[in-house]
Amino acid sequence: MNVTIRVWRQKNTEAEGHFEDYEAKDLNPNMSFLEMLDVVNENLTLDGKDPIAFAHDCREGICGTCSCMINGKPHGPESGVATCQTYMRSFNDGDVIVVEPFRAKAFPIIKDLVCDRASFDKIMQSGGFISIRTGSAPDANAIPVGKEVADLAMDAAACIGCGACVAACKNSSAMLFVSAKAGQLNLLPQGQPEKDARVLNMVATMDEAGFGNCTNQYECSAACPKAISEEFIAKLNRDYLTASVKSVFKPKPTTMV
């Protein structure tokens, strides 16, 4: 099959970007979208031109590195898969496919289709963890976790941090990402001691990074390659408001002068 790809080319963060058309010929329909880009890049390199920069790593849908807005939808036309597992058979012969980078103030474009998602790392550093004593491994099942709670936490833990939620949101809000990461830990007993601090800090870091605000339209959930439910956003809202009220009234320890 043959397709034309209309790709966003941008030299660096400061440069003005523009679209360029490339022909991708004699493709196997079972190639992944990224393999198609590899073919185009191969030809560009042979012609002595600058290949298209795109982010990728594991190519099996679990690392969250690949991105791309394909025909106006993050990760392409299929649902529940990342760009690396989107195959050319999802397109028609002769299609013109528009490929853009994820766009958000908090995700500045580094080059072409690659954007900097370090603001997600900052959010994780501010609360996406539990503090435990390292050492020998604890006994398995020493802390009982209900099956339903474990399943729900697993749903949230499926987040690969790709940023499709931000890319799909009309407001570039990171609520689905933050809610999945905070929700996963807040559901489990190991996450309880830092629950309040976690949501307060993660939301503060999210606000600071310049993400927009959630308007409850759930485009994030529809675009998520792991189909994470917007109900985690409701949980984050609940946990955050509870933590805020508690932090206003809770007694502070005495400071000795």
């Binding site: 807005m69 485009e219 959930s221």
Partner: peptide, 10 residues
């Protein structure tokens, strides 16, 4: 803004 963006379920 994107040049093309689909509305998925809003």
């Amino acid at each position: 803004d994107y040049v093309s963006q689909q509305t998925l379920r809003a």
